[in-house]
Design a protein around this nucleic acid. Structure first.
Lengths: 211, 211
DNA sequence: TGGCTTATCTTGACGGTGTCTAAATTAAAG
DNA sequence: CTTTAATTTAGACACCGTCAAGATAAGCCA
């Protein structure tokens, strides 16, 4: 995600064709860039349209609402996060313990590298509103990647705890999410502390699994 | 918090004195009510001023910014939460285990009963900005109430773990916060599940302490 | 090819927002 | 009673999201 070239490029020439070509994607990409750089508050549809080189109301033919655009940005985030998780889970050479640690650390990295997008992804605005059903689906697909890990543990008989794998996944994801938020919201400011807390949390989790 | 009488009362008579009396407090109370009922997005300074029966720009003599007002609302939340926690911690008749459980459940209750305020209290907007130093202080005082619990455990020799009490408090608070957010943001929707997850999390914590 | 339909984009406008400046009003202090 | 400081007000500015009508281009069927 270091490539923000589409921001500056699209504004370049004044005589663009009437039809943009792939306006929806261009809007989405630019929105992701803006939100990561300046937060949700820094995104206005008018500035966005201007940046992409299109009129103020053009975006409304691709996104019903500002909220719909935000949901798309959040969805992009969940897809990226899903990729990170499945990469860790499907790393066939690694033992389960390191799969878990890789998933946890990858998750935390994403949250701390893109804090404003992470806040959007889990904010009330998109979860209370029943409008954004498709976004909620991709979010749940992301969570399923995480659950898969615990099912693998169970299959290999590595869980002695009575709790069903789903419950364990829910519990530990809540912990992970809490740490991610405290870190990305700037409440736990020290990165070394965060790393340390995560490591001991994983260690404690392994104790719980055996108990 | 069932008493929102100040909302409707203050608008009543048209011929109010030029000086309001305690405008700052009235603005704060009304803001808390609005945010709890409609979320941060539902609060506009103009509607707020109208509601309290005062001109559009009057609030600016009591709060530098809209952000400053939001910080005050968040601060009020932390004070209320502090009260809940210290009430649980200082319940002298209760054994430590039930103190912990009371604190955890009180915390979750607050988050689920006032989700929009909870979101404000922990949002990036107020934590990234160095402006709101006093708000961050009251937040940290709140956290200290929670740390106190683990220090009590340590004093009574009930912690066999190597981890220092502060670290344990940080870890478990992260977990608690994560669960609270998933619940209050509407991601974990089922209240029975949440209650259950919290209980098993506390049980697991007690295992960790002994280990 | 020509004409119809549909998708896409634009211009103009409306009501709402945060907040700045300058003036007015009142309470408090000397 | 006079001066001063604290409050409150009115007016204005630049933004914002989004609605309604119209202009433009592309796709499709004849």
């Amino acid at each position: 995600m270091k490539d923000n070239s589409h921001i500056s490029n699209l504004k370049a020439s004044a005589n663009q064709p009437y039809h943009h070509g792939n306006l929806r994607l261009a809007l989405l990409n630019a929105s992701v860039d803006i939100i990561r750089a300046q937060g949700v508050a820094g995104l206005s549809l008018r500035k966005l349209a201007d940046l992409v080189g299109v009129s103020r109301t053009a975006p409304y033919h691709h996104f019903k609402d500002k909220d719909a655009l935000l949901a798309a940005v959040a969805g992009q985030g969940f897809e990226e996060l899903s990729g990170l998780l499945s990469q860790a889970v499907n790393d066939d050479d690694a033992p389960l313990n390191t799969k878990l640690e890789q998933a946890v650390m990858g998750y935390l990295d994403f949250a701390t590298q893109h804090p404003t997008q992470y806040e959007l992804m889990f904010g009330q605005a998109l979860w209370q509103d029943t409008q954004h059903e498709s976004f909620q689906r991709t979010a749940k697909d992301c969570f399923r990647q995480y659950v898969k890990l615990f099912e693998l543990f169970a299959q290999q008989g590595l869980i002695k705890s009575q709790e069903p794998p789903l419950r364990l996944a829910q519990m530990t994801w809540a912990s992970l999410h809490g740490l991610a938020r405290l870190a990305s919201d700037g409440i736990f400011a020290n990165p070394a502390d965060i790393h340390d807390i995560a490591k001991t949390a994983v260690r404690h989790l392994e104790i719980i699994l055996q108990k």
